[in-house]
């Protein structure tokens, strides 16, 4: 138990140091999500234990770990989608731009408007491509046809799918391939111009080529958005993220620059996981 506590301390110390060095070199590094002492229970199961994480703006933060480690739960807590599961309880705080989103007075719809989400399996609505994109703007009261047209084009361009679908905007989204559907879902998230995009294993259901395209897209998106990506694919985390958090059994084992995590992890469990010894 004592080594565990030690490790955690090390992690925190390290990440703080990191912050300082980063703040010195890069002018960004403003914190978008500040998680403090987050605990989460599904009924009796303690799924997240004392999570402390600071996530930077306009970076790609990867969350890795074996299945059941709490990484998906954590990302779903960031836009409170986790509340759709009955019997969920949380303690601690998650400050989003300085405001605690776990506070009851924080309107969850506002949060989710500013924080977009892309899911594990592509989940376009059974509607036309055009209607999929305009869904978000419409529910938030934008009705002007010209503006909607513009949003559709910009969002689809932003998700690298405009050229493929511009001639069939009124066709059902179910006619698209899996990779196209996922990029459509990204475009749908972009349509309301969020600040953060959460991605829950966005490529796990896709073929390698589509995966590569989405990884490329993620690199481009981070210029404008803060991205948090859950992935079970360590190469992917290494390729696309700036920082990486390693989750194990509901705890953050290590959180550091991606480079450091993959070349010089400070925790033996991280090393074991990365070198494929478990998970």
């Amino acid at each position: 138990m004592s080594t565990l506590a030690n490790n955690k301390m090390k992690v925190q110390v390290k990440s703080k140091q990191d912050e300082e060095t980063e703040a010195a070199t890069v002018e960004s590094g403003k914190i978008v999500y500040d998680t403090k002492d987050l605990n989460l229970w599904y009924s009796e199961t303690h799924a997240l234990k004392d999570i402390n994480l600071e996530i930077n703006e306009k970076e790609v933060t990867a969350i890795i770990g074996p299945s059941g480690c709490g990484k998906s739960t954590y990302i779903k807590t960031l836009n409170r989608m986790v509340e759709l599961v009955p019997g969920v309880r949380t303690t601690g705080t998650i400050a989003y731009k300085g405001k605690n989103i776990l506070d009851r007075s924080f309107k969850v719809e506002d949060l989710r408007t500013q924080v977009g989400m892309v899911f594990q399996k592509p989940n376009p609505f059974p509607k036309s491509i055009y209607e999929n994109i305009t869904y978000g703007p419409k529910i938030h009261g934008i009705r002007n046809k010209k503006i909607l047209d513009e949003i559709v084009e910009n969002s689809l361009r932003g998700a690298y799918i405009w050229d493929e679908v511009k001639d069939r905007l009124n066709e059902n989204a179910y006619g698209l391939s899996g990779g196209q559907q996922q990029r459509l879902c990204i475009a749908r998230a972009l349509a309301v111009q969020p600040d953060v995009i959460l991605m829950d294993e966005p490529t796990s259901a896709l073929d390698p080529k589509s995966t590569l395209k989405i990884e490329e897209l993620v690199q481009d998106l981070k210029k404008e958005y803060s991205l948090i990506i859950v992935t079970h694919n360590m190469q992917q985390a290494a390729r696309i993220s700036d920082k990486t958090a390693f989750f194990l059994n509901g705890e953050v084992v290590e959180y550091d620059k991606t480079n450091t995590i993959f070349t010089n992890p400070s925790d033996s469990r991280t090393e074991d996981y990365i070198s494929g010894r478990f998970g």
């Binding site: 989608m81 759709l84 989710r112 977009g116 899911f119 989940n123 749908r188 998230a189």
Partner: peptide, 10 residues
Amino acid sequence: LSEASYGMGA
């Protein structure tokens, strides 16, 4: 489908 909609802030 409903998750996607809630995720958009609906």
